[in-house]
Nucleic acid binder design. Structure first.
Length: 474
RNA sequence: GGCGGCGUAGCCAAGUGGUUAGGCGGUGGAUUGCAAAUCCAUGAACCCCGGUUCGAAUCCGGGCGCCGCCUCCA
């Protein structure tokens, strides 16, 4: 099976072939930890998680690295205004130093990853722990003539890298035509970008050959990726807003420094809107994972909703969308609860056929640039077919069915197998169910409904089926 | 102004030249003490205008609308 991915570098869907056979080196542009990650951030990270799961399911060994940006960044505007960056603002608001702020939000981020059932990456490098390597790379660029020093600042000279623009289409010429770049008299060209900056007002400072300062905002990713994965990586991911200038600049500085192709596949996730609008705190549609969980949404459903739209498409997340995902998840759980299998029943060829067909359809869709929509349709088609087939499956067929859903879940990670099979019912609840069934037999429906409501209040949902009363936790 | 993306039924969302994907919701039915779950049935569609074609949601041209990036941002 071959995985095809849409490569932003070429704009085409391409067969994925890692440089080293069987081994994938993947770098994900991670969060800036001056605040909680919001659902838009998480969508992009989820794309990377699904990709990693897919590649592993296809037999690749995946070396995944996600950076943690714990250096606040300063823009040129900030320099003019007051020289204050977001990390500094957050630090001031919380009355803490920036390292404590970063630590706090890094931990919150890891909690989010856990709640959303992320696979753990090989490494989560911190920008603040990679400063010497960054300085070394800047020195290398200066000595090769790709960067120049002005005062305490170092800039990358885009004129020395003719391929600038190959990722975003923003070539030096088209940027000039656009004529919206600010003119900084220190720079030789407006598109030149900072590799190292000095600013006495910046809270985080390190010594360097050019005096005290801090790294430019593109250099971190190049350095952290190369420090762990080497100079040539296979896949680099991020949100589409990172495509330019961030990733364009990463390519320029990395390839100018090494003379090698930095990353061969660039994968970008589309922008997430909420309720049809850009997320903004002022609009009240700015959601973090914990906001949604506090509203009672199941993180598995949130994950399912966030990956339900093709990753390259813009996506509009709605609360209805999460409800829909929750409902579909529940359909799978409902089916699997009754798919227990009975010894002695004959195997049914149509069950094996349905499972095989669903698996093929699912895999084909996911291999096609992670096309989740048909993949999800394959999952739900299998649910429908099995519901139609009835519950009297042989033990072997039941195991086959469960194995098929486990395969889906291994790639989607939405908790398909994470259902309550009703084994640990307390004797008290059991007694109430018995009492209710007695009342039903006596046609005392007022009493039976009272008991059902009482259990519902404790989060236990009863269902009366042909084979007796079953229950599940809400 | 430059670079890029999107417009499919009440909602979400595949498809991308000819055979009504799928889901959520709605409606009718089966089942049920009533529900739930499940099954069966069912309506509704391709932003607009031209063009190519036997045939276009799908290709081409022109509009309109929405969104992202060009300042940190997934």
């Amino acid at each position: 099976m071959t995985v095809f991915l849409t490569n932003s570098l070429t704009g085409r869907k391409e067969e994925f072939v890692p440089r080293v056979p069987g081994e994938v080196r993947m770098y994900n542009c991670g969060p800036t930890v001056y605040n909680y990650a919001h659902v838009g951030n998480l969508r992009a990270f989820l794309m990377a998680d699904v990709l990693r799961r897919l590649l592993e399911a296809r037999g690749f060994e995946v070396r995944q690295v996600m950076n943690i940006t714990d250096v606040g960044h300063m823009t040129e505007d900030d320099i003019r205004d007051a020289g204050e960056d977001k990390m500094a603002v957050a630090a001031k608001e919380l009355g803490k130093d920036p390292y404590e702020v970063a630590k706090f939000f890094t931990e919150a981020f890891f909690a989010d990853l856990k709640a959303l059932n992320f696979q753990e990456a090989e490494a989560y490098p911190r920008a603040t722990e990679t400063i010497p390597e960054m300085i070394a790379m800047v020195e290398r660029l200066v000595s090769k003539g790709n960067a120049y020093v002005v005062g305490g600042n170092v800039y990358f000279d885009v004129a020395t890298f003719p391929e600038y623009g190959k990722l975003s289409g923003n070539t030096v010429a088209s940027l000039k035509a656009g004529a919206r770049l600010e003119v900084n008299p220190e720079k030789r060209h407006p598109a030149d970008f900072a590799l190292w900056k000095s600013d006495p007002q910046h809270i985080m400072q390190w010594d360097s050959p050019w005096g005290p300062g801090f790294p430019g905002w593109h250099i971190e990713c190049s350095v952290m990726a190369q420090a762990i994965l080497g100079e040539e990586i296979d896949i680099h991911t991020g949100g589409e807003d990172n495509r330019f200038p961030h990733h364009e600049c990463e390519i320029a500085q990395s390839e100018a420094a090494t003379g090698k192709t930095f990353a061969r596949y660039w994968i970008h996730t589309g922008y997430l809107q909420v309720g049809g609008e850009k997320m903004a705190k002022s609009k009240g549609n700015f959601f973090t994972l914990r906001d949604l969980m506090e509203k009672g949404y199941d993180p598995r459903a949130i994950r399912a909703a966030l990956i339900s739209v093709h990753y390259r498409q813009p996506m509009n997340l709605t609360l209805d969308g999460i409800d829909e995902a929750a409902k579909n998840l529940e359909r799978v759980h409902e089916l699997l609860r009754k798919t227990t299998g009975t010894d002695g029943l004959p195997d049914r060829p149509e069950v094996a056929e349905a499972a095989a067909r669903a698996r093929n359809d699912f895999d084909a869709a996911m291999d096609d640039d992670m096309n989740v929509s048909p993949a999800r349709a394959a999952v739900l088609a299998l649910v429908s077919e099995l519901n139609r087939a009835g519950a009297d499956l042989s033990t072997a067929d039941a195991n086959l069915v469960r194995g098929t859903f486990a395969h889906f879940d291994g790639i989607l990670g939405t908790g398909l197998m994470d259902f309550d099979d009703g084994e640990d019912l307390s004797t008290e609840v059991e007694a109430l169910i018995e009492a209710r069934n007695a009342a039903r037999k006596a046609k005392d429906f007022a009493e039976s409904d009272r008991i059902r409501d009482e259990l519902a209040g404790r989060g236990i949902i009863l269902s009366d089926g042909a084979g007796g009363t079953t229950w599940k936790r809400k």
